[in-house]
Design a binder for these strands. Sequence first.
RNA 1: GCCUCAGUAGCUCAGUUGGUUAGAGCGGCGGACUGUUAAUCCGUAGGUCAAAGGUUCGAGCCCUUUCUGAGGCGCCA
Length: 477
Amino acid sequence: MIHRQEIANVLKSPTVGEEVTVMGWVRAWRGNRFMVLNDGSGAETLQVVVNGEDFDEETIRAIGFHACVGVTGELIESQGAGQAVEVVAKEIIIYGATDLSTYPLQAKSQTMEFLRENAQFRMRTNTFSAVFRLRHALAFATNKYYNDRNFYYLHTPIITGNDAEGAGEMFRVTALDPASPPKDEDGNVDYSQDFFGKSTHLTVSGQLQAEIGALAMGKVYTFGPTFRAENSHTTRHLSEFWMIEPEIAFADIDNNQDLAEDFLKYLINHCLDNYRADLEFLDERIKQSEKNMKAELRRPMGLLEMLEFTVKDDFARITYTEAIRLIQGSKPYKKKKFEFPVEWGTDLQAEHERWLVEKHFKKPVIVRDYPKGFKAFYMRLNDDNETVAAMDILFPYIGEMVGGAQREEREDVLRARMKEMDVHADELAWYLQLRTFGGCPHAGFGLGFERMVMFVTGMGNIRDVIPFPRAPKSADF
RNA sequence: GCCUCAGUAGCUCAGUUGGUUAGAGCGGCGGACUGUUAAUCCGUAGGUCAAAGGUUCGAGCCCUUUCUGAGGCGCCA
């Protein structure tokens, strides 16, 4: 039986004079005397004073960067500046020494790219342990938020038989031999002989199945991995990412907006209330990295300041039509600085969204009622017959954080839209039946979980907020 | 999928119009050091210049192809 105290608990209510046993990884080893220990229980470290005459040389030599050690000793008031208390080591156990001549990491700041390639060790750094504690915090807060509001957590399938969920390229799932798959008369691969007796893929969204849940249990949410085989090379896309998709019955687009805004603020508040030290560390990290940058490239607000500001103020709410009008009246539009055209009927490009969020409103913006031409078939047609009850929530630095809509509950309208957009009704017969039998107005949205982790941690690349990122040409670990 | 930039020591980078034996800081290793906070000081070893091909008397540098990474755009969350 191993007994140890977690460093976060020791530091929360330190009792000077008490004997403590702590275990963790060495973050720094200074002057052959001071060992800085972190065990992951929080952002804080505990300094251990090692008096050379009390230990044999072998033990002293084994202490080094990222070595794993256990220490028993007396907690005393620190004699140096920089920490309130420290431990004078009485006993040291070396659990795992680190051969520094071959260990990839170093006790200095390293690039995100290098750490990404060494993901087996990157969680030992201050930055990544903070990021992944906050990732946990956001996942926990998500489940708590919905549980406390009588939503049910619905596990939608990861392997799907729906060919068209309308959200991008899909990864095929097959048990057929890729070298010699069975063929039909026309020479095409015969998926009726495949494992499931049909063509199957990894899910791109749990929304359609979540609608089944909402139209029986009232309020449900999904929270699971989703997959997109898009060849995207950006800092905001992954091939495998996690999505939170609440779906609620007896709700329209206004209920949907309120839920999304309240939920996002709840998530941020949970982190501000419970993970202050990690946020302060990340805030400081960003400030340090921006020190040598030109003023206009720096963030206008620090991380903590921005999170607190986001929670305090209402999100801006506008329609697509208003957004177009605002952009057409903007300075960059008049000076022809935008690369893409802005006129009613075209989708908002990243440059336009950035102007709205970062320059005009300077806070999150909810845009609703988009033209039906470039939105999905299941979004509810508005009375103007031109727009649909879709909503996107745009965040500074992130872009689209949330995409959602009131769903089309009128079967005839839905059938017409599917026909218009070339979605085969026979493949989604079960989805149409939700309208034929006991349907009602309902709405929901999808939140890209990693984008939320990016916003809260201030990390600039989505690959650095998921432990083991999957992206084109990249599936290590 | 499109565009731009990059790949030189373990890491981060410098390397002039193509010219002798490719450099620095950090890290490593060896040593010193009993109050450090990115500890400090002294010493020292590290290189198939991404890969292949080409131009040239001569290529880290020029050309071609491939691979890898970063960033931007599109697609989206």
